[in-house]
Amino acid sequence: MADLEEEFAFFARATEARSAEHRQIINIAVENKWWSVTGSLLRMELDSLIRVNYLRTHPHDRSQILSACVAGLGFGIPRHDGVGVRRIRDTVMVPSGGWERRVYDFGNRFVHLTEAHNHTERDPFMALPEDERKVIVEYLDHYHRGKSGVAILSVDSAFGDVALYAPHVLEKIADNTRYSLEEVGREITRKRY
């Protein structure tokens, strides 16, 4: 597949399929209190968003990155020697500060084996510094307050109460990903004609 539009369409379909799976399973994970799965799903959905946003903000690298992705080489730019790709690290793609960084950092605690997996013995939300909990509560309150099934949070809320927001957070991330995919698609189409 050498055509940029075809490669982007392939990438977009893969991204949308992944989001659809996440949307289907997140409520089941929350209902069963599978907190490790819930945190991992949020982190994976954010993974899609940061990659799509990288493509959106780095139009000069788009073609190479999409070719590498479609070829199964990962999200990166082919090396000059033709062997593999120079992967673009998450730390480069995740904006510093803001909600993306918080979801990324907290979600990583569930993607990687950490103390957060022992959430029955130690509440992972309460393990965060109070100022970090305050910022998270403010974000959740600002974007998701009043949505069905979620309690109003405080810095002293239990992780189980915070986790009830996960389906709403995932939906917001997925919507942002879809919007960014559409933006990139429009740019690719516009440049071609």
Rank of each mutant, 00 (worst) to 15 (best):
M1H: 12
A2W: 13
L4K: 13
L4G: 03
E6T: 15
F8Q: 00
A9P: 06
A9C: 05
F10G: 11
F11M: 02
A12W: 05
A12C: 08
A14P: 00
T15R: 11
A17D: 07
A17C: 02
A20T: 11
E21C: 07
H22L: 13
I25K: 12
I26F: 01
N27K: 12
A29V: 13
A29S: 10
N32C: 04
K33S: 12
W34I: 07
W35H: 03
V37P: 00
V37R: 02
T38C: 12
L41E: 06
L42R: 01
L46P: 03
D47W: 02
S48N: 15
I50G: 05
I50E: 07
R51S: 02
Y54G: 07
L55I: 01
T57G: 08
H58Y: 07
P59C: 03
D61C: 02
S63P: 04
S63H: 10
S63Y: 10
I65G: 02
S67L: 14
S67Y: 10
A68K: 04
C69Y: 05
V70Q: 09
A71N: 12
A71E: 04
G72I: 06
L73Y: 09
F75V: 01
G76F: 06
G76M: 02
G82S: 00
R86F: 02
R86P: 00
R87D: 09
R87I: 09
R89L: 14
T91I: 13
M93A: 13
V94Y: 12
P95D: 06
S96G: 09
S96D: 14
G98F: 05
E100G: 05
V103D: 10
F106Q: 06
N108G: 08
F110Q: 00
F110K: 03
V111R: 03
L113H: 13
L113T: 14
L113M: 08
N118L: 13
N118T: 10
T120F: 10
R122W: 09
R122A: 07
D123L: 05
P124G: 00
M126H: 09
M126N: 14
A127H: 02
A127S: 15
L128S: 01
R133Y: 05
R133I: 02
V135M: 12
V135R: 12
I136Q: 04
Y139M: 12
L140K: 02
H142C: 07
H142P: 09
H142A: 10
R145G: 13
R145E: 13
G146K: 04
G146D: 09
S148P: 09
S148R: 14
A151G: 14
I152R: 15
I152Y: 10
I152V: 15
L153W: 03
S154Y: 00
S154T: 14
D156A: 11
D156W: 12
S157Y: 05
A158D: 15
A158L: 08
A158M: 07
D161E: 11
V162G: 02
Y165C: 03
A166P: 06
A166K: 01
A166R: 03
H168Y: 15
H168W: 15
H168S: 10
K172N: 15
I173C: 07
T177F: 10
E183F: 10
V184Q: 04
V184M: 04
V184Y: 09
R186I: 14
E187V: 03
Y193G: 14
